Simulated assay, not measured.
Amino acid sequence: MDSSSDKNNMDASSDGNVSFWPDIFDPRNWDALDSKTIDILVENGPKRDLTIKKGRKDKNKRCFSSIFYTRVLPNGEKCDRDWLVYSRELDKVFCFCCKLFRKGHGKGHLPSEGFNDWAHISIRIREHETSAEHVLNMVTWYDLRLRLQKHQTINCVAQRQLEKEKDHWRKVLFRILLMVKFLAKHNLAFRGTNSTLYQDNNGNFLGLVEMLAEFDPIIQEHVRRITNNETHVHYLGHGIQNELIHLLASAIKSEIIKKIKEAKYFSIILDCSPDASHQEQMSLIIRYFNASSTFVSIEESFLGFLDVNDTTGQGLFDVLQEELRNLDLDIDDVRGQSYDNGANMKGKNNGVQRKLLDKNPRAFYS
Rank of each mutant, 00 (worst) to 15 (best):
M1N: 15
D2H: 15
S3K: 13
D11T: 12
F20I: 05
P22Y: 06
R28W: 12
D31S: 08
K36Y: 11
K36D: 08
K36G: 01
I40K: 06
E43S: 12
N44L: 13
T51Y: 13
T51I: 08
R56A: 15
K57V: 04
D58E: 05
C63P: 00
F68W: 07
Y69D: 02
R71M: 13
P74H: 12
S87K: 07
E89W: 11
E89F: 12
D91Q: 06
C98S: 04
K103M: 01
P111A: 03
G114Q: 07
F115P: 01
V139P: 00
W141F: 10
D143H: 03
L146H: 11
H151T: 04
V157S: 11
A158D: 05
E165C: 01
D167E: 13
K171D: 02
V172N: 07
L177M: 12
M179I: 15
F190Y: 09
T196L: 10
L197F: 02
E210T: 08
E210L: 06
E210K: 10
D216F: 11
R225G: 07
I226A: 06
H234Q: 05
Y235H: 14
Y235G: 06
Q241M: 08
L244W: 11
I260L: 05
S273P: 04
P274E: 11
D275K: 13
I285F: 15
R287V: 03
Y288L: 03
F289E: 05
N290A: 06
S297A: 12
I298Y: 03
F302L: 04
G315R: 10
N326T: 10
L327Q: 02
D332I: 11
G336W: 07
D340H: 04
A343P: 10
Q353D: 05
K355G: 00
N360W: 04
